[in-house]
């Protein structure tokens, strides 16, 4: 960790702090994020409202903290789902090969050819509007995750394919090891590196997917808060031109993107160091 450039370390630190702040929204947010104050709409940051208010008089700071819960959680759940599916299918295809492998490769190719943002929006549109915000967030996470398994699956398949050809796997077979043991003890440890880098790649993409969805009006419905919802007012030119504090949520998105990018670089250089 010591050899990381300062900017990288800073970006990762900011990312972690952001997560912690969002997790502690209950304690850190000064107001209820949905509470409207008709008397103080679109006020600039002040002592009462540290980051200003929006067009309904809702406190931006609280909305940013609480909104992060939905956006970040959706991203994390979707990532875990995609990695879980990708790991299972990739291990099965890589280890047993044959038709299961051929099936996986064709399927992955198909899913990779899907214009996933379009599909995500389309499926979301046909979902009932009556779902609660968390149920909706979970559904969105499920859709993103089930569409995004293809790339991790292919990578893991590759790793397992080469791992199972290594001599120590043959040796273990020679001792009568079961396939389960071969997979868990010898092949899986080789996948950890790939899993981590994929996680660092997918997390920002999936978090961003939720933000984009909400930004376009197809995420969680009002009055629930997500970072995408916070960015929605910016679609109006009057807002984007006149009220600078309304653009602050953009920094959240940038912080997430930069943080994960730095994390990915750090992982890549540590992988290089380990295998070099």
């Amino acid at each position: 960790m010591k050899s990381l450039p300062l900017l990288q370390k800073l970006a990762i630190a900011v990312l972690i702090c952001l997560h912690l702040a969002v997790l502690g929204a209950r304690f850190l947010a000064p107001y209820d994020p949905t509470e409207q104050n008709r008397a103080s709409t679109l006020t600039a940051p002040s002592r009462i409202f540290p980051l200003g208010t929006d067009e309904f008089g809702r406190d931006q700071l609280s909305r940013m903290l609480w909104g992060g819960q939905i956006s970040l959680a959706t991203g994390w759940i979707a990532t875990l789902l995609a990695l879980g599916i990708g790991l299972t299918l990739g291990v099965a295809a890589g280890f047993w090969g044959g038709w299961s492998d051929a099936l996986l490769m064709r399927g992955a190719e198909l899913f990779l050819a899907l214009p996933w943002l379009y599909l995500l929006l389309a499926v979301r549109a046909f979902l009932p509007l009556s779902l609660s915000p968390w149920a909706m967030a979970l559904m969105i996470a499920a859709i993103i995750g089930t569409v995004g398994w293809a790339r991790p699956a292919r990578l893991i398949r590759g790793v397992v394919l080469s791992a199972k050809e290594r001599e120590f796997v043959y040796a273990a077979r020679g001792f009568g090891a079961s396939p389960w043991r071969l997979i868990t003890k010898h092949c899986l440890p080789e996948t950890y590196g790939v899993l981590l880098t994929q996680a660092a790649l997918l997390l920002p993409q999936f978090i961003l997917a939720e933000v984009t969805l909400s930004f376009l009006g197809f995420g969680v419905a009002e009055p629930a808060v997500s970072w995408g919802n916070l960015l929605q007012p910016l679609r109006q030119i009057s807002i984007i031109g006149g009220y600078w504090w309304m653009t602050l949520p953009v920094l959240l998105v940038v912080a997430v993107a930069w943080g994960f990018s730095a994390l990915e670089d750090a992982l890549a250089s540590s992988n290089r160091a380990n295998s070099g």
């Binding site: 290594r166 001599e167 120590f168 043959y170 040796a171 273990a172 020679g174 001792f175 009568g176 090891a177 079961s178 043991r181 003890k185 010898h186 440890p189």
Partner: peptide, 28 residues
């Protein structure tokens, strides 16, 4: 039992020596 052409390669580099030695038994 068969000992491979590259005996070193038949050992998982992540294992400890004792672990590697015991593997044939642990499997059973």
């Amino acid at each position: 039992q068969l000992i491979f052409q590259d005996p070193g390669a038949s050992l998982n580099p992540r294992f400890r020596v004792a672990e590697a030695l015991e593997e044939p038994l642990v499997i059973h």
